[in-house]
Design a protein around this nucleic acid. Structure first.
Length: 337
DNA sequence: GATCCGTGGCC
DNA sequence: TGGCCAAGGAT
């Protein structure tokens, strides 16, 4: 794997060339958090923006929460951004601005689970650690033709990864396994002819490597319905800050009514006024449900106040840091107008 | 262990 | 078209 990595490693903004000293732990950490459940191509522009604006732990620890959340907008899984800030502040305050170098200490920081702690320990600090992500699970399940389905097989897979992890260049080994999974040992149509492990791959010997790993079936995704309220006043629209936890937690958004099994129409409008229900429909797929939203619009005169939220210039909504769901609503309004 | 938590790309 | 998947973590 190391020889293959020396020849075929992907060049990525957070990565050091194979065999060279480890890169800046801050950049390794930031990239690993962004890469959680997120593909490389989606991460690269966010990584460049973040490292330009906040080049180290001290800068990020001193940043405004709202600016960091806005910068993360569109990348998804917003708890990552909240934990990112919390971890940066712990590192700045309690660890003299440096990430601890061992896996157990890393694991205690917000946003560091088993994978991220192992990956940072291996890649940024050269520690031997068992790094298991979705790519590694797939590669190893195929290599050993593991018949047990995920997620139940995770403990077995971790033992198998441990059994093949070397003492030397553990960071390069981990990245080699992940590169292999991302480029060769892909979920569908794996490119076995290019794989350095093809000779010893049990799944390939069986003839259907793409059938691994076996997985339990997922539950069907229900549909929920909501109304988004577009309230205008003098070229501005009302935005609210969502609660700090839960779905899109801590992000700006349009006021919405309840998200229910049936269209809620004008329930929980931010103000009692003459709403117009539009027939523009917004569809957005989350991990566990699909949302169908309709828009209700209204315009206020200048003297109505005492409404919770921020009045935001409509012409500058692209700067509001709206998650995609609400950005879609803005697009729908632009097409209506 | 099961659920919740975004978004975009792919076939 | 829609189901699946992606460098997972928190509760």
């Amino acid at each position: 794997m190391l020889a293959w990595y020396d020849a075929h490693a992907r060049s990525l903004p957070w990565r050091a060339p194979p065999g060279s000293p480890p890169p800046d732990p801050y950049r390794v950490w930031l990239s690993e958090v962004m890469l959680q459940q997120t593909q490389v191509a989606a991460v690269i522009p966010y990584f460049e923006m973040f490292t330009t604006r906040w080049p180290d732990f001290a800068a990020l620890a001193a940043a405004d929460d709202a600016e960091v959340m806005s910068a993360w907008a569109g990348l998804g899984y917003y708890a990552r951004a909240r934990n990112l800030l919390a971890a940066a502040r712990v590192v700045a305050r309690e660890h003299a601005g440096r990430l601890p170098g061992d896996e157990a200490a890393l694991r205690k920081l917000p946003g560091f689970g088993a994978y991220t702690a192992a990956a940072v320990a291996a890649i940024a600090f050269g520690q031997r650690a068992v790094v298991v992500d979705g790519n590694v699970e797939r590669v190893v399940a195929r290599l050993f033709a593991l018949a047990d389905p995920l997620p139940g097989a995770k403990a077995t897979l971790r033992m198998l990864v441990d059994s093949i992890t070397p003492d030397t260049r553990p960071g390069d080994f981990a990245q080699a396994m992940m590169d292999l999974g991302a480029t060769i040992c892909t979920p569908r149509s794996p490119k076995c002819l290019l794989c350095p492990l093809a000779d010893r791959c049990d799944a390939r010997a069986e003839g259907a490597p793409e059938s691994y790993p076996f997985k339990a079936k997922k539950a069907a995704r229900p549909v929920r319905h909501a109304t988004f309220f577009w309230l205008e006043r003098e070229g501005q629209v009302l935005l609210v800050r969502r609660p700090p936890r839960g779905l899109l937690g801590g992000m700006r958004g349009l006021p919405t009514g309840p998200w229910a099994a049936a269209p809620p129409q004008l329930e929980e409008a931010p103000v009692e006024t003459d709403w117009t229900l539009r027939n523009a429909s917004i569809r957005h797929v989350f991990t566990h449900f699909e949302l169908h939203a309709t828009l209700a619009t209204a315009t206020l005169g200048r003297h109505i106040d005492a409404i919770e939220g921020e009045w935001w210039p409509i012409a500058r909504l692209d700067e509001a840091g709206l998650p995609r769901l609400f950005a879609k609503a803005v697009e729908a309004m632009e097409s209506v107008a």
